[in-house]
Amino acid sequence: MASEALPLSWRRIPERYCLIGNSCENCKTNFFPTRKICPNCRRRGKLADKTYSGKGKVYSYSLVNVVPQGFELDAPYVLAIIELEEGPRVTAQIVDCGEKDVKIGSLVKMVFRKIKEDGDEGVIHYGFKFGLVK
């Protein structure tokens, strides 16, 4: 598979590697991924980068058995909506666990993993996933 979406993935590296989002200094709302307009304040909004701690808890989850193309090797995996301690929610896999290990409210922290690969010869896309905190 050719790496056709290269620039698309590359642009997202700060967000995907380091969980850098942004925050509106006017209404104090935190965003992830970054927004270019604060939906609350619009023209009055003032957005500044914000790096999230990577700590959060499970808001909802599912064991995904039928996976999209490119995720076959990881199947089945637990996918979750994680609520970061700073507020924003993100969708990501919870690694190294089974469905029974996860509950709504389980504490998690960000880990760095391969998200997917463009075949054997294409680029590897890395980014955040989450691991359960013991």
Partner: peptide
């Protein structure tokens, strides 16, 4: 970029609900 890329499918999104 933020759901499908992370391994989400439509059944998974409705499973969250």
């Amino acid at each position: 970029e933020w759901e499908l890329f992370m391994g989400a499918t439509f059944p998974a999104l409705y499973a969250f609900m």
